[in-house]
């Protein structure tokens, strides 16, 4: 431990200023300072876990996977929304960090934001494939054809983990409670841009009101903070282009067809002898 501290020069202590708020007890949030040992390679989440285990077990925050997959631990770290698990302290370069819950959401307790508004907005833009051939959608016979190019035209936007960092960074979301926000609008484009979908018109009417795609003024803060490189700002501009194109008489695309049934089949690999087959079991 002390060796690691020496490797870091003189730094062996980390100070976390954490915003606390307990709705049962406190009238307003306040800042509390914790000092803990610094260890090389430590993330902000490691620091918070250390506090909960060793200093104050009442500190509330959300975290699950510790590897930037679940999107639960987004918080405002030194005035920038980021994933606590994805932010090594050394990357920030300061050893006194200010940690607050994500803005533009309500606070449940301490660092836990209430992201339900984001999920409601996400659902409102119909983030799923919609096609005319309902029968094929419900009883699929084969996969839909999609070229690698077609996949890449929306793939980037499909990496969203719904952590809410973009909504916390967005200046329009700072006042517009109705504003759908970068997360929902990006997902709207993710499906509008999918070659297997042909009902983007329904999604476009969901994002057309003033609190939809028009609330974006391309400040680009969402793309800067996205921990997964989703680039919501780009998606929203492409969505806006689609909305304009549709209003000027653009037609819905023909969705990609169902893959043709395979012609001929390869010779089956023989089942190894040690495998238990259906016949053995009965």
């Amino acid at each position: 431990m002390s060796n690691n501290g020496e490797n870091q020069g003189s730094v062996s202590k980390l100070t976390l200023k954490v915003q606390r708020y307990n709705p049962d007890r406190d009238k307003a949030p306040y800042m509390q300072e914790f000092t803990l040992p610094f260890r090389k390679g430590m993330t902000v989440l490691d620091g918070l876990l250390y506090i909960r285990e060793n200093i104050d077990s009442s500190l509330a925050f959300r975290a699950s996977c510790r590897m930037g997959i679940c999107g639960a631990c987004a918080m405002l770290i030194n005035n920038l929304p980021r994933l606590a698990c994805h932010t090594p302290v050394e990357e920030i370069g300061e050893f006194t960090l200010e940690i607050k819950p994500l803005p533009n959401f309500a606070i449940v307790k301490d660092l836990v934001p209430d992201t339900s508004s984001m999920f409601e907005k996400h659902a409102s833009v119909k983030p799923y494939l919609m096609r005319d051939d309902q029968e094929e959608m419900e009883h699929p016979t084969a996969e839909f054809v999609q070229s690698p190019d077609e996949l890449e035209s929306y793939l980037q936007f499909a990496y969203c983990i719904k952590c809410g960092a973009c909504v916390a960074a967005c200046p329009t979301s700072a006042t517009g409670k109705l504003y759908l926000g970068p997360q929902a609008l990006t997902q709207a484009y993710r499906y509008c841009g999918d070659s297997r979908d042909n009902k983007s018109g329904e999604r476009i009417s969901a994002v057309d009101p003033y609190y939809g795609v028009w609330g974006c003024h391309f400040a680009g803060a969402c793309s800067q903070v996205c921990p997964k490189g989703v680039d919501p700002a780009l998606a929203i501009q492409l969505l806006r282009r689609k909305v304009f194109a549709q209003s000027l008489g653009g037609k819905e695309r023909t969705p990609s067809p169902v893959a043709a049934p395979p012609t001929g089949s390869k010779e089956k690999i023989p089942v190894p002898e040690f495998t238990v087959t259906q016949d053995d079991r009965s």
């Binding site: 057309d208 939809g212 209003s247």
Partner: peptide, 9 residues
């Protein structure tokens, strides 16, 4: 009411 024509103008 649709917002597109307003923004286009």
């Amino acid at each position: 009411m649709r917002e597109v024509p307003l923004r286009l103008w």
